[in-house]
Deep mutational scan, measured.
Amino acid sequence: TGEEYIAVGDFTAQQVGDLTFKKGEILLAIEKKPDGWWIAKDAKGNEGLVPRTYLEPYS
C-alpha cells in the first residue's frame, strides 16, 4: 500500500508508461523516485509514472 495524493492539475501521458489523470483524482503513490516522477495507481487500478509536482498529500 502507498500514500494517497490528490491531483492539483490535469496531466496527459507524454509517453508510454505515464499515467493520465485529472485534477481532483486521488492517486496512490507506489514508489517515490528521486527524479520527481513517481509510480502511482488510480482508482481504476491503472498504474504508471506521474510528475510529483501535480500531487499534494490527501488527508
Rank of each mutant, 00 (worst) to 15 (best):
T1S: 13
G2P: 14
G2F: 14
G2Y: 15
E3F: 11
E3H: 10
E3Q: 12
E3C: 12
E4Y: 15
Y5N: 01
Y5S: 01
I6S: 03
A7M: 02
D10Q: 04
D10L: 02
F11H: 07
F11Q: 02
T12P: 06
T12A: 09
T12N: 10
A13M: 06
A13P: 06
A13K: 06
A13D: 03
Q14P: 05
Q14G: 09
Q14E: 10
Q14V: 12
Q14R: 15
Q14D: 07
Q15H: 13
Q15S: 13
Q15A: 12
Q15D: 09
Q15G: 11
V16G: 09
V16D: 14
G17S: 06
G17P: 03
G17M: 05
G17Y: 06
D18S: 11
L19S: 01
L19E: 01
T20V: 04
T20Q: 07
T20I: 04
F21G: 01
F21P: 00
K22T: 08
K22M: 09
K23V: 08
K23R: 11
K23H: 06
K23T: 09
G24Y: 05
G24H: 05
G24N: 06
G24M: 03
E25F: 04
E25K: 00
I26A: 03
I26Y: 05
I26V: 10
I26C: 06
L27K: 00
L27E: 01
L27V: 05
L28F: 12
I30T: 05
I30K: 05
I30G: 02
I30Y: 05
E31R: 10
E31V: 14
K32H: 06
K32N: 04
K33L: 12
P34C: 11
D35V: 02
D35M: 04
G36H: 05
G36L: 05
G36M: 06
G36Y: 05
W37N: 07
W37V: 07
W38K: 00
I39N: 05
I39G: 03
I39S: 06
A40F: 08
K41H: 07
A43D: 09
A43V: 10
G45H: 04
N46L: 07
E47D: 06
E47F: 14
L49D: 04
V50A: 07
V50S: 01
V50L: 03
V50E: 02
P51N: 14
P51A: 06
P51C: 12
R52C: 15
R52Q: 15
R52L: 13
R52M: 15
T53L: 12
Y54Q: 08
Y54E: 08
Y54T: 04
E56D: 07
E56L: 11
E56G: 05
P57Y: 08
P57T: 07
Y58W: 12
S59Y: 13
S59R: 12
S59C: 11
